[in-house]
Design a protein around this nucleic acid. Structure first.
Lengths: 348, 348
DNA sequence: TATTGATGTGCAAACGTTTGCTCGTTCAGA
DNA sequence: TCTGAACGAGCAAACGTTTGCACATCAATA
């Protein structure tokens, strides 16, 4: 049997309430009593039972992170580990813990989340995906759980942190345009995700602005896997009018593109230029290294935590759900996957 | 205020105990009462308060996963996301949740773990690193917390799941020897980790068995980062007697090796062969793709969970800590990073 | 000396469950 | 008609905390 507050109290010759107050730093406890209690606590290695504590204070000191789909596919993309890094780092500073929610399908995930939310295991949640057909978010809003989403929500009234993906997509495309590329293709993941849509929109905007004919545009959308990327791109590369450059919405997919280009007997960046997104670790490690848009994943996670704490604060003072949004800036990192295109003017 | 069991009871015209029993599937509750209660529960979307529940049943339905060091560096290596995949998948099947423990240094991590263990937030823990100077494990053993380690513990009496890394290291080395390589270098991470030591020992064993002179051996040990790998290997490659092959203890490090080799103007596999470990996603994606030893990371995670549940079971029936170990087999996956060496006999 | 105001501590209720025990019905068998 | 299972449900204690309120002590003030 674990050591309880009563034992501490008994040994210290005080009541449990005094111990509790001493622990909480209540100024009404005298210095000597406090010291005596502290000594005994250290000696016995006492830690309060969090369940009992949460039960009365109505706060768990834990937040929930809801992974996309099954945690399965989620962890395949380096984005998620990275965002988790940011989240854990920030939580650490607040002394909060992290409860992970997954589920092989939406139903069991929902059950899992309901249990941790209604079961009062978490004080708030961070959602890691913005998907069109996600019912979870309705549930969470109805439950009035403090929550913030990473990525642009498809509903009104949800606090979130995101990049300006339209702008980022536009800038990435313009980078290629400036270097003399005209026939530029866009390769994204599923269009059910806001991030894919936004980056594509940015691409379109840039192409519009540059007055590129629709015939020179190609929008590919696959399943976020490199295999699919490989297949799609291989196809395109064998067309007589193949693009000279690709805007790829994800580093992992860019790996598929690299593979496809090389298999087609072409070289990067001489024959085909690539700029991709996320700037995860591996973008440095490919051959050639990828020019990629850094979206500061760590900051996305960090900021999400900050916002969530603000929300938790507000909700406990009953100001009711307020929604906020924070945009993390992006930055194109130049590496070796882009060369001058056929229309280069020589003055970039 | 959330809906409680009392409300359900009131609406159903029964006592809380009856509701509790109905939920637990207690056979003493009549079918009609059960149905009536269930209807109301569905209607109101009731979920029991887990804190209250855990408090009395003395089980949290949650297990803790202790990440190496700060979750920071941890998530950099694809190994951890992958093992987490295995763990979450297995936990899901048991209806268990996952609480993550990190800490920017050992002290705060210890605090974090103590809180979740003694705070009764978890029923058991999985440790993700086997490090020589880790005090945490003493604490956990003393607390008699059900735990299993992924990787070979440096202490007796700890349940664990691991690969036979000595054997794997030996086989990887033999694979190169069989193909006519003689001057083979080993590149591993920090020697504070059991995994590094084991794979190196395997390498040594194979070299011994093949009667390779010590002069033909090179053992490099860096910090598990690709930068370090890059540096170390660059050095070695400029020696007049450079190795013709590398056994690299981690795919990520192998990326560094690839970079170093290419920077040195050499090609893989013609000039330098590589076999690495872990077979994470990226080993397929490099150029050329890496021949890598698959250690079945998913199974390590999965099996750790199974063992932990067995331990929890035992410990609740007071059989006292028993220790078990499970070895996940390994399998060399042949890809494009190995060619025949200078001493190839032509009959492999 | 009586009153007051700090100061330090304790009592007991409350949080939302689970569960051992008790109790009232009902019904079959004697 | 009486006895005693068998069945269905409720009472109340327990889990380990926190916290509003009451209380005791003591020094200072009136």
């Amino acid at each position: 049997m674990a050591v309880t507050i009563k034992e501490i109290a008994e040994r210290a010759g005080v009541s449990p309430s005094t111990v509790s107050r001493a622990l909480a730093g209540n100024p009404r406890i005298s210095a000597e009593t406090r010291a005596r209690i502290q000594r005994i606590i250290d000696e016995l290695g006492y830690h309060p039972n969090m369940n009992a504590r949460s039960l009365v204070v109505k706060s768990s000191g834990t937040i929930g992170v809801v992974l996309p789909r099954s945690g399965d596919s989620a962890f395949l993309n380096p984005f998620f580990p990275e965002v988790l890094r940011g989240i854990t780092a920030a939580l650490e500073e607040h002394g909060y813990a992290l409860l992970l929610a997954t589920g092989r399908d939406d139903a069991v995930k929902h059950e899992h989340v309901a249990r941790m939310v209604q079961g009062k295991q978490v004080d708030g949640v961070i959602l890691l995906e913005s998907r069109a057909d996600d019912h979870l978010i309705f549930y969470l809003r109805e439950q009035r759980v403090p929550m913030v989403m990473i990525g642009r929500p498809l509903l009104e009234g949800i606090a979130y942190v995101d990049n300006d993906n339209v702008l980022a997509g536009k800038e990435a495309t313009e980078y290629l345009l400036e270097r003399g590329h005209r026939h530029i293709a866009f390769l994204g993941g599923s269009l059910a995700y806001a991030v894919t849509v936004d980056r594509r929109d940015g691409y379109m905007l840039a192409m519009d602005k540059a007055g590129i004919a629709p015939a020179m545009r190609t929008v590919l959308s696959t399943d976020f896997s490199e295999e699919d990327a490989y297949r799609e791109v291989t196809d395109v590369l064998h067309r007589p009018d193949r693009p000279t450059a690709f805007v790829v919405a994800d580093d992992l997919m860019a790996l598929g593109v690299i593979g496809a280009v090389q298999s087609a007997g072409l070289t990067i960046p001489e024959d085909v230029s690539i700029v991709s997104f996320n700037n995860v670790l591996l973008s440095r490690l490919t051959n050639p290294p990828l020019t990629s848009v850094d979206i500061h994943i760590l900051d996305l996670g960090r900021k999400a935590v900050e916002m969530l704490f603000a929300l938790i604060e507000k909700s406990s003072s009953r100001v009711d759900h307020y929604t906020d949004t924070y945009i993390v800036h992006t930055q194109l990192i130049e590496r070796g996957s882009v060369s001058l295109g056929p229309f280069a003017s020589g003055n970039v």
